[in-house]
Simulated scan of single mutants.
Amino acid sequence: MTRKKSRRLPIVLLVILVLLLLVFLLGIVKNQGGSRLEDLSATDQAILTEYNTLYASLRQEDIWTGYALEDKTILAMPGSWGGGYLINPTQPVSGLFAKEIALPEDWDITIYRVAAVTPGLMAFRFEGSLNTIGKDYALFGSPVYFVKYDEASVTEPWSNLHFACFLSHEAFHYYMQEGWPEGSRFSTEGLTDGDIALLEEEYDILCQVQTQLLSGDPDQAALEEAARAYVAVMDRRLAANPDYVQQELDMETMEGTATYVGIQASRRVGYDFGIMYFSNQKDVPMDQVIPQYQAGNLDKSFLADRMPYETGGLLCLLMDALAIPDWQAALNSQTPEDPVSLYDILKSWTTT
């Protein structure tokens, strides 16, 4: 019996190897066929069309000073275990594992469909949904920013996970903020009732800004008055609870700027996304947050986990509306030893 089993083992291994080779070859052959844009799935076509729209816009004007996303090679992956699309590679691409997609004549990008069996894709399969800050990624010799997507990436309304928004937001963290002070998540344990009262004042002021910007024709004097009122209440908040508020300002600056970038990218591709957008409602007034929290409809953690994205994004839009000079450059030049927050920029503007 032992001898029969030992004879079967090499045969089983041989069969497995043959099957794996067939899968490998079929994967390559399948990737070589259907190489026109219209041959792709509806989701893949939507993703690539949206990126082409964003790319064309970025070539005309960046969405942030020095953030040249259009110069980056993008690897768009429909999930973890399929293939992917390599967009604008900087190095020649292997013809065995990749097939160039035939695109409309008015497109300016180059796209290669990468076979699922491509050995180089294995490095991305267990990496989550996007690049990790501080880590380098490459495929076929081109440094890449990879992002994974699904159908909801182009069909879900009012979502920060929409493809152009998500890509621009997360790539901004990767390419622009590595040298910024860390704006990590923080706990609301140090938030007192007095802090909540001051926070409500802040949200009331920011709601005025929100209302003005949503009007489409904001009153400049009202925005300037609100900016000064915001700085005044933040001064009081810092005096009352400096440790907590500084953590909030750090995260607000990191995530608020990335939210702003995502909003700008969404506008470039015609997707409806903005400040205080939720799955069931958009343009939620900021002055409703504390009353909803006090009514028990929002967890206290919402104030730290979500609101810095919203307040920070709104402050960026406010600085655009106020035409504050070089505010993006001021943030770009900061270091952990010499940090700059959105509040710092507005405070400096109010005193000049």
Rank of each mutant, 00 (worst) to 15 (best):
S94G: 10
T110L: 09
K135A: 08
K135Y: 09
K135I: 10
M122V: 14
T118I: 07
A102H: 02
G128C: 06
T110N: 11
K99R: 13
Y112G: 01
P119T: 14
D108A: 11
K99A: 07
I111M: 05
A115I: 03
P104E: 00
D136Y: 06
V93P: 02
W107F: 04
S94W: 04
D106C: 01
P92Y: 02
Y149K: 11
Y137D: 03
A138C: 04
K99D: 05
P104S: 00
L130V: 11
G134V: 04
L130M: 14
R113M: 06
F126G: 12
V117M: 15
L103A: 02
S142P: 13
P119I: 09
A102G: 00
A102T: 08
D108E: 08
K148V: 07
F124L: 11
I109N: 05
A116T: 05
G95T: 01
L96Q: 05
F124P: 06
G95C: 03
F140K: 00
Y137W: 11
E100T: 05
G120Y: 08
I133E: 10
V93A: 01
I101Y: 02
L139I: 09
P104D: 00
A138L: 03
E127A: 15
P143Y: 05
A98R: 02
F124R: 09
G95H: 03
E100Q: 13
P92I: 00
R125C: 08
D136F: 05
I109A: 03
S94Q: 07
